[in-house]
Design a protein around this nucleic acid. Structure first.
Length: 198
DNA sequence: TTCAGGATGTACT
DNA sequence: GTACATCCTGAAC
């Protein structure tokens, strides 16, 4: 299965966000075990013009440095003191932009993902847990064991600890579009229809 | 089924 | 000191 290349990420962030739906995140643990899930929900953040982006107006801070990195890197940060958010850096190096991965469904080693999330096997999850498995950025990172330690990783490196397979891109006709979540403070940017899901 | 509130720590003002 | 690209719990309905 092909790994998405740097060219895939080096496009308009909204285009990348749409194109990531249906693709497969592969998380390789230290012991070699590969966890995998299919992307179902994304959001675009573009520092050039987006008040909701941490690097709005090309603002450099220690946290946002990786947003300026070459496309195809991870941007992982801690939010609300206890959760992490996984993003993929997009556009040209020096353009701070990224796609937030908001949701996914497990496709490989679901038992280990379930253990990370709930401390049980996938088949022992309650219906409520099944419905709330990886349907949020913090939940996804918990399930895939991703933290700030994985910030700045190169996603295009074969044999790396994190990469994205081509998978089966979602049918454009099946993609929903809407406002992004949790950015009410961002004034006009709060209404940008930059959230995509299937 | 929905909703309010709290957890928790880092970045930035 | 304040805000934050969130999630879980428990209570009310």
């Amino acid at each position: 299965m092909d790994i998405l290349t740097q060219e895939f990420y080096a496009r308009d962030t909204r285009e990348v966000a749409r194109d990531l739906l249906g693709r497969e995140i592969v998380r390789v643990l230290a012991d070699g075990t590969a966890l995998a899930c299919r992307i179902t929900e994304t959001e675009a953040y573009i520092g050039r013009l987006d008040k909701a982006c941490h690097a709005y107006g090309y603002r450099h801070t220690p946290r946002t440095e990786t947003l300026f990195a070459p496309p195809g890197r991870t941007y992982l940060y801690l939010i609300y003191g206890m959760y992490h958010c996984l993003n993929f850096v997009t556009e040209a190096e020096g353009e701070p932009a990224a796609v937030l991965i908001r949701g996914a469904v497990p496709i490989e080693n679901g038992d280990i993902i379930a253990k990370n999330r709930f401390g049980c096997k996938e088949k022992d999850m309650t219906p409520y847990q099944q419905k709330n498995f990886l349907n949020g950025p913090g939940k996804l990172c918990r399930g895939l064991a991703l933290t700030r330690a994985e910030n700045g990783l190169d996603l295009t490196q074969p044999g790396g600890e994190l990469y994205v397979r081509s998978g089966i891109p979602s049918d454009p006709a099946a993609i929903h579009t809407g406002k992004r979540i949790g950015i009410d403070y961002a004034e006009e940017a709060a209404d940008f229809p930059w959230r995509f899901w299937t």
